[in-house]
Write a protein that binds this DNA or RNA. Structure first.
Lengths: 209, 209
DNA sequence: TCGAATACTGTATGTGCATACAGTTATTCG
DNA sequence: CGAATAACTGTATGCACATACAGTATTCGA
């Protein structure tokens, strides 16, 4: 549900108050800021905002207001790369819907500078040491060379495979005998290369709870 | 003026509280967190912190605590973590002889904060997706829990294995059927745990020249 | 035309919280 | 040694705040 203009004003005030004073406002402070005559006016707005999921209210706690979506964009500037989780069908790779977070990477750590991180799903690259849950550092590229591991899109599906091309015939090879190669005839079918894998980061699977 | 260890603890708690709950703590909440018996204990610390310029107190305002230096050091002091290559026989893990470089890591990317990176040699952990040339993010720890993947030293050799202990018998398990488990009887032999693996970074093996 | 929101006014009530006052026990320092 | 500081215990007091109850006016979709 969308916020009314007035509710958006209140929410903006709460955000501003948090930044300027380091803590959320009280009902009374909202009353003063908007020149209300009753604390209930402020309280009504808070309840409306909470009902619509914009804030969280903690009963009995002074200043117990928490803004749930801190900012519109996570920080437009380029101080990190986005982590892309499940890619929603039909959407571009970096659609905000799919971005789970932003991470700063030391680019020297990878073979080339990555543009985003992609979470691996499935076991198809198991024998290349790429396991489900791993994060792949991906560099955006529309083309690929033989032998590179690429992020490709076939129809609505995003897949990670080793790239092999002979003339017009492309083969996307899994690194797992349980998965058959995918063959694409470029003269008849379309293949979109989203990028090439330049690094891998793993943060689970080491037996740590 | 410098903070006492106790004051630093209080300050750390205030910071953590702000991040986790979105607002500063009350005196009572500090009392609960530190198991004090009197609100004055919390208040004394707040006044000391304010006097030393670490925080700002706003009289008469509930939760009127503002941390003046939001970050510890914004990014300074932390040059990153060292990359340890081949560990020279007999030398401590982090001897300068073995350090090949320093890398800055986004610590949120791993299960726990790593202290150094170690380059993997050999195929013994192949089936855990840990391949030769990979960099393991290692947290220094003298002890380990069952199931954790650890960096251990046996005599002069450093090895990475999965840790299993039953009483005095420790088994270091490879993730590759070609490698037999290493058995150590703690009552007769010594086993030094150098740390536990909390993450993995790979920068090669993707077919990029 | 009637209910359901939105957007308020006005008054109360009780507790969440900051804060003052009075001590105690170590530790440090000139 | 005596004074200052750190690190507390224990008890009070009263404003700061969240919150309930009772209305009013306006808009808007069914």
């Amino acid at each position: 549900m969308d916020l009314t203009p007035r509710q958006a004003e209140i929410l903006a005030f709460i955000r501003r108050h948090c930044v300027e004073h380091g803590l959320p406002p009280t009902r009374a402070e909202i009353v003063t800021a908007f020149d209300f005559r009753s604390p209930t006016a402020a309280d009504d707005h808070l309840r409306a905002l909470a009902r619509k999921g914009a804030i969280e209210l903690r009963p009995g706690v002074s200043r117990g207001i928490r803004v749930l979506e801190p900012e519109d964009p996570p920080e437009a500037a380029n101080d990190g790369v986005p982590l892309v989780g499940r890619v929603a069908a039909g959407l571009p790779m970096l659609a905000t819907e799919s971005v789970e977070g932003w991470y700063k990477l030391d680019r020297r750590m990878f073979a080339a500078e990555p543009d985003f991180l992609l979470r691996v799903q499935g076991w198809s690259m198991r024998d290349a040491g790429i396991l489900p849950g791993d994060l792949l550092a991906v560099q955006r590229r529309a083309t690929a060379r033989n032998g590179e591991i690429v992020v490709a899109r076939i129809g609505d599906e995003v897949t990670v495979k080793r790239f092999e091309r002979r003339g017009d015939l492309v083969r996307l090879l899994a690194a797992n005998p349980d998965f058959a190669p995918i063959r694409i005839d470029l003269s008849r079918e379309e293949l979109v290369i989203e990028g090439r894998v330049v690094g891998l980061v793993r943060n689970g699977g080491f037996g740590i709870s």
